[in-house]
Design a binder for these strands. Structure first.
Lengths: 199, 199, 199, 199
DNA sequence: AATGAATGAGTATTCATTCAT
DNA sequence: TATGAATGAATACTCATTCAT
């Protein structure tokens, strides 16, 4: 939560208790459940108990809401990942931390928003795609750096470029099947995923 | 092509040369490119050079087209996988064959349709989702069986249930980054993917 | 009517009996009566007995309807004026013919459209304004030429540039007060207007 | 300015320095430029540097603003015309004074409001139209009286009723083409206009 | 007086689907 | 089979107006 509070204070991320924040949270939920296109502005308004016209006091268009959902999620998860990396000693620890963080972001609180990020990409205008892409690059850089480090330390044999892409797919797909309250803990899942990368 | 011809003769899959077949192919392309919701019936009609009203002589609704795209793709890829498995001796070979087949289906001719299958799932009515799910189960059974076999043969250490899911994600994600005409061949990619499963 | 038939055959002007033509006529009426902004697409549709969505089979936007009303009116009146000029001998006759034509267009069949042309100008996009302006220039050229001729023949003393503008205002304003079925005939009105220009 | 000060003191016309006065002035500008319908209350508020809600402390509706713009303009121009007439000796002088006053009102300080008066008439409710019409009658009476006088004095031959209407149109149209800072002075323009009426 | 969030009825436009030809 | 005009419900978005602060 340290990361979150800091970002809120900076104004980088919306306070989830505010009207705008509640809307974003509900939007992530609806966009995941029904898809962006099939979610109407009226649906969004209803979900937070206001009239549809009032939405446009907070966001100037429906797409703006989608962009905010995506943008804030990346910013938050990047910050969270940075904090986690800071506490790691070995490069093996770092890779595990990255996996754990990504799994948390996908299966935990920001899970719906992460799904939206993957599935609703095409609904973004080109301009907004570029904006998000720039943020995504920052996030990916953290991965690339740590994987390279682990490879130099001999933990990894495979091509790190390909490996990162396999991991991206494997981890993001967990949203479709992993239940954090089921028999398998997130920590165990992370360990299993680590096996994909490190022998 | 053996698989395809057989399915066409059975009437299970549409002849890609027929009017209906061409429409399905163009539909897969458009649905992938723009998304199902953003593709209008007029777009579809235009792409095959007919008027929008005429679409409904071939399919009774737009959703029907989506269902057909998905259904035929699964049927075809299941058949193709079966043929490939028939030619394998060891369980290790089988796993590699499955990976190769899935990569072919994702990055080759049926790639667009496979992407649609993953990304446009929610646009299907519940009833149609069930229908596709049933076909998917048949396909997945081929995987589960082979992975179990490979585990009993000592090739695999991990949990096969989790492993299959990791692989599903990792392989389907290749659609976003793998270029069959690039420096990495599909065969090499399959070998790299096998490393995720087998040490 | 010669002018009209010819233009219809050319496809320059819409046949008033066609669906599109009837809509344009009703649109001119409503735009004059309520103003363009206050006339809804639903109003337009209702006035010709179709559903609002069907409007967009004939015109791709509401503004397109406004543009067509204006454009066709200018084209028609330019053609009508040309025919009238052809039958004149003296330059005095020509000026009277121009006045008569303009009064006819303002107080007669195209009166509503002419009013729209004056009052709804700002509702046109810049691009469409340019388009109409080009047509208007052709029309104005007929006036300028004839007034100059009359001045050289000694009928007119005033500056023709200023005179044309005074006449434009004076004649267009007749739409607000002149009733063709009242005590004053259009011919008498034209004679009175001629007095503004010629002594 | 005598006329203005007197009207302000009476409370008949708003002091242009007051908040309300500044709003009316900006409103006239915006209504002319964009049209009444296309000018939003937010536009109006922004133009005087307040929030949209605050508008309604000065006027109880948007239409009220339009009415005030129109009403105050007529009142002011009627007063100005009365003062001008008081200084005339002959009926010819009076007609010239009327023309000069009307041109001043159209092309000078109240020009934007005068344009609004002509072009936004239909945006007024019937009740408000009546109210303005009553004020307009007072204004028109000054014209009719003077024209009749000039006719009896032999300056005018034409029908005064028709002549006034021709003049109304001719003069109001100057707003579209006359530039007070151009080569032609307002006084010269007035003389040219007088020629329309008097030989 | 001023704010600014909220309202809710209204707008132009889109689009899958129908059906007479 | 194919057409294409017509449907009508649905959509994102606008905006004058209200009102608690």
């Amino acid at each position: 939560m340290k990361a979150l509070n800091q970002l809120i204070e900076q104004g980088t991320v919306t306070d989830p208790e505010s009207a705008r924040g509640r809307l974003l949270s509900k939007a992530a939920h609806l966009f995941k459940e029904k898809g962006y296109e099939r979610t109407t502005v009226r649906d969004l308004a209803k979900s937070v108990g206001i009239q549809s016209g009032s939405i446009f006091h907070h966001f100037k268009s429906k797409e703006e809401i989608l962009r905010a959902v995506m943008e804030e999620t990346i910013l938050f998860n990047t910050a969270r990942m940075r904090l986690a990396l800071d506490e790691c000693k070995t490069s093996r620890d770092k890779v595990l931390a990255l996996i754990r963080c990504e799994l948390e972001s996908i299966t935990g609180d920001t899970g719906e928003a992460m799904t939206v990020l993957v599935y609703e990409w095409r609904s973004l205008s080109e301009e907004n795609q570029k904006r998000i892409l720039a943020l995504r690059d920052v996030y990916e850089q953290l991965w690339i750096t740590s994987l390279e480090e682990a490879k130099q330390d001999g933990y990894i044999e495979a091509d790190t470029f390909i490996l990162r892409r396999f991991l991206t797919g494997a981890l993001s797909w967990t949203t479709t099947w992993f239940n954090p309250k089921g028999g398998l803990s997130l920590e165990e899942l992370a360990e299993q995923a680590l096996l994909l990368a490190i022998k």
